Computed example of a mutant assay.
Amino acid sequence: MAGTYFRHLNYALGDEDSSVELQVLPPDTGRVVAVAGSGGRVIPLLARGPRELSCVDISDTQLALTELRVCALRTLEHPEYLGLLGYEPMPVARRLELLGALPLSPGARGALEPLKAAVAAGERIIYLGRFEQMLRTLSRVNGLLTRAAGRRLFDAPDLDAQRAYVTSGFPRSAWKGVLLLLGNSAVLNSLLYRGDFPKKNRPGSTFRIYQELFDRLFQDTPARKSFFLQMVFLGELRFAEGFPIEADPAVYRAAQRHARKCRIDFIQGDLVEEVRKQRDVGFVSLSDVPSFLPPAREQTFLEELKPGLAPGALVVTRGHLRVVTPGHAGYAHVTDRYQDVLARETTQLWTIHVYQREPSGAAGERFQEDLSHARGQAEPFV
């Protein structure tokens, strides 16, 4: 694993639309293991009702922030949760009161002391990570280059109007300058990764990748409904319809109900090793962990996971500029089953792969038959 990058609070909001994992995770899965991240990617998993959830991260600070979110989920009503994290306005004194009342472990409370100090100074939790600070810096540069014309993207009443504006009024020349900055690996290394930037292996220039990414977003996603576009252009979340899915009232209510009876563990360490130690894990959410593995191990991590997985277990991976394609003997590559879900993902930052652990023997033969007859639909969250 990369070293320096994981010693700090890198994500407080995150860069993933976890609606993908929410739809891929089958209801009532017995045991789930997930990268903790900011915790925002974990909350939606609880809405599916797993009986056990292990939140794993190499960073004690990220793990502590995840514990904060879970404690808040278990104890706070939805408006207070949004206010505590900073999605909605809340007096600083009330945020500090709620933060102090959460039943955090001593380790988590100690790890979050800098966060508490930032909250006392008026900062909102969801903007405190390095990634969010990088996006806020980018949004200021974006504002200088594209000015009010760029922000008018959010005035479009519907997707058709947005597409028309992108074609006829959007400041494309100035936007190209923003993309050149965003596509500069030296800039990203300096602002976010601190020397641990994963080596790009996707074909084409970084500029071209980002150009195509944002073109898809402009054409397919209303700007107000994308937390990522809000951060890039506005430097903050102003439109509730674009809040990440952890803030969705229905998801929150379901996650809260299940979190109160789910066994949830917070484990500092290597996620792949943690899965190996367990048994009958039914779902693994790896995020982009494979992008940071040593080259040899990025090819073998699925093999490493096998001892801890139940037959039929699902493993979800993500890659951004570096997309890992591991050996997957003993797995079915079932990404195509979720194409509708992936098409609705609201950041378009990620190449997402889904693998399913194949049973052995006669059960494996039946599994292959069932797989060949699958219609390729995720079971929707209601």
Rank of each mutant, 00 (worst) to 15 (best):
E97N: 10
L98T: 08
L98Y: 05
L98H: 07
L99W: 07
G100P: 08
G100Q: 03
A101V: 11
A101S: 15
A101Y: 09
A101I: 13
L102Q: 15
L102Y: 10
L102V: 13
P103C: 09
S105H: 11
S105G: 13
S105W: 12
S105P: 10
S105T: 15
P106H: 07
P106Y: 08
P106N: 10
G110V: 10
G110I: 03
A111I: 05
A111E: 08
L112Y: 08
E113R: 15
P114W: 03
L115I: 11
K116M: 01
K116R: 14
V119D: 08
A120H: 09
A120Y: 04
A121L: 00
A121V: 01
E123Y: 09
R124K: 14
R124E: 14
I125N: 11
I126R: 04
I126S: 05
I126Y: 03
Y127E: 14
L128N: 01
G129Y: 10
G129T: 08
G129Q: 12
R130N: 09
E132L: 03
E132A: 01
M134W: 03
M134Q: 02
L135M: 13
R136F: 03
T137V: 11
L138S: 10
L138I: 12
L138Y: 07
V141R: 04
G143K: 00
L144R: 15
L145M: 11
L145I: 12
L145K: 02
T146H: 06
T146Y: 03
T146Q: 07
T146V: 15
R147C: 00
R147H: 01
R147A: 01
A148M: 09
A148K: 13
A149F: 08
A149C: 04
G150H: 01
G150V: 12
R152A: 15
R152Y: 12
L153A: 11
L153K: 05
L153S: 10
F154S: 10
F154Q: 07
D155H: 13
A156N: 04
P157T: 00
P157V: 00
D158R: 02
D158F: 04
L159Y: 12
D160F: 04
D160I: 07
A161H: 02
A161G: 09
Q162H: 05
Q162M: 07
R163N: 06
R163C: 04
A164T: 09
A164G: 03
A164W: 12
Y165N: 13
V166C: 08
V166W: 00
V166E: 05
T167Q: 07
T167K: 02
S168N: 10
S168L: 12
S168A: 04
G169S: 12
G169A: 13
P171R: 01
R172E: 10
R172C: 05
S173H: 00
S173K: 05
S173P: 00
K176G: 05
G177E: 03
G177S: 04
G177L: 06
L179V: 11
L181P: 01
L182I: 08
G183N: 07
S185T: 13
A186Q: 09
L188C: 02
N189Y: 06
N189P: 14
S190N: 01
L191T: 12
L191G: 06
Y193I: 01
